[in-house]
Amino acid sequence: MDGGAKAKDHALRSDDVRAFLADNPQFLKDDPALLAELGLRPDAANVLDFGPAALARVHEAHKREAGARKRLEATARANFAAQAQTHGAVVDLLDARNHADLARRVDELAQLRFGLAAGVVALSGPDRTPAGWRMLVEGQIDMIIGHQRVALMGFQPTALGLFGERAESVRSMAMVRMAIWEPSREGLLAFGSADENGFTEDMGAELVAFLARVVERTAERWPVL
């Protein structure tokens, strides 16, 4: 019991320390070693002044805060730009006249709006595939992005075939499953980047998934002929 009481008595709170220093102003002034450790020094006017160590700490803290703020601002600007480009891409996709035109627009917006290597629309199944779309066999989408996975960001060797003659330039991909028509056929919207850091596993797939939903709804305007 005595040991516990002593430990409790020695657990000082910040308010206790503040009150003690206010009641004993000479405590710090009479301890030069403690002042030096805190980066403080008494000046000629009997006032505590920040020493070089304290100023250095304040400067470093300011630099860290400024750096963090700049990174947040850069991220916010990048997100805003990506959203603006995505909204413009939606308008382009909705203007498609048929399936072939839709596939062409996906590829064009990938290159012109987003600076990517390619954009591809693929469809799985034994039935007919629209002109301009990549044909995949049953189960191939699972082989490309994994069973039960809706989206994949990063590099996937099994997806290189989607990009045809431009496959050699693709270093990372963003891919999202689609379900089109009724009864539904499984499809895939894929974008390829020449930058290995263009799409990484830690990136969110929300904007790509949004574009996939637009492609689904636009493609359903026309039957597969």
Rank of each mutant, 00 (worst) to 15 (best):
M1L: 10
G3Q: 11
G4T: 11
G4M: 09
K6T: 14
K8Q: 12
D9W: 08
H10L: 10
L12A: 01
D16C: 09
D16A: 13
D16E: 15
D16P: 06
R18W: 12
A19V: 10
A19Y: 11
F20E: 00
D23Y: 01
D23S: 08
P25C: 05
P25G: 02
Q26C: 04
F27G: 05
L28W: 04
D30A: 14
A33H: 10
A33D: 14
L34Q: 13
E37T: 13
L38G: 03
R41G: 01
N46M: 07
V47T: 13
V47N: 11
L48H: 03
L48W: 02
A53T: 09
A54W: 05
A54R: 07
L55H: 02
A56M: 11
V58M: 14
H59R: 15
R64L: 09
G67C: 06
R69F: 10
L72M: 12
T75S: 10
A76Y: 07
A78G: 09
A81I: 12
A82R: 13
A82Q: 13
A82H: 11
Q85Y: 00
H87C: 04
V90E: 00
V91N: 05
D92R: 03
L93W: 11
L93S: 09
D95H: 12
R97Q: 15
N98C: 14
H99M: 11
A100V: 08
A103F: 04
A103Y: 03
R104Y: 08
D107A: 05
L109F: 02
A110P: 00
L112D: 07
G115R: 06
L116Q: 03
A118S: 01
A122M: 08
A122P: 07
L123Y: 06
S124Y: 02
G125K: 01
P126S: 12
D127E: 15
T129Q: 13
T129M: 09
T129E: 10
P130W: 01
G132M: 14
R134E: 12
V137L: 11
E138Q: 05
D142T: 15
I144N: 02
I145R: 01
Q148R: 15
Q148M: 12
F155T: 00
P157E: 09
G161E: 06
L162E: 01
S169E: 14
S169D: 13
V170L: 05
V170S: 02
V170H: 01
R171D: 02
M173K: 02
A174I: 00
M175R: 03
M175E: 04
A179E: 15
A179F: 13
A179D: 11
A179I: 07
W181G: 00
S184R: 14
S184I: 10
R185A: 01
R185F: 05
R185L: 03
E186R: 09
L188P: 06
F191T: 02
S193A: 04
E196A: 11
N197F: 00
E201M: 06
D202Q: 11
D202W: 10
M203Y: 08
M203E: 08
A205S: 14
A205F: 06
A205K: 06
E206R: 06
V208K: 00
V208C: 03
V214Y: 05
V215Y: 00
V215L: 04
V215T: 04
E216G: 09
E216D: 14
R217A: 08
A219K: 04
R221Y: 11
L225M: 12
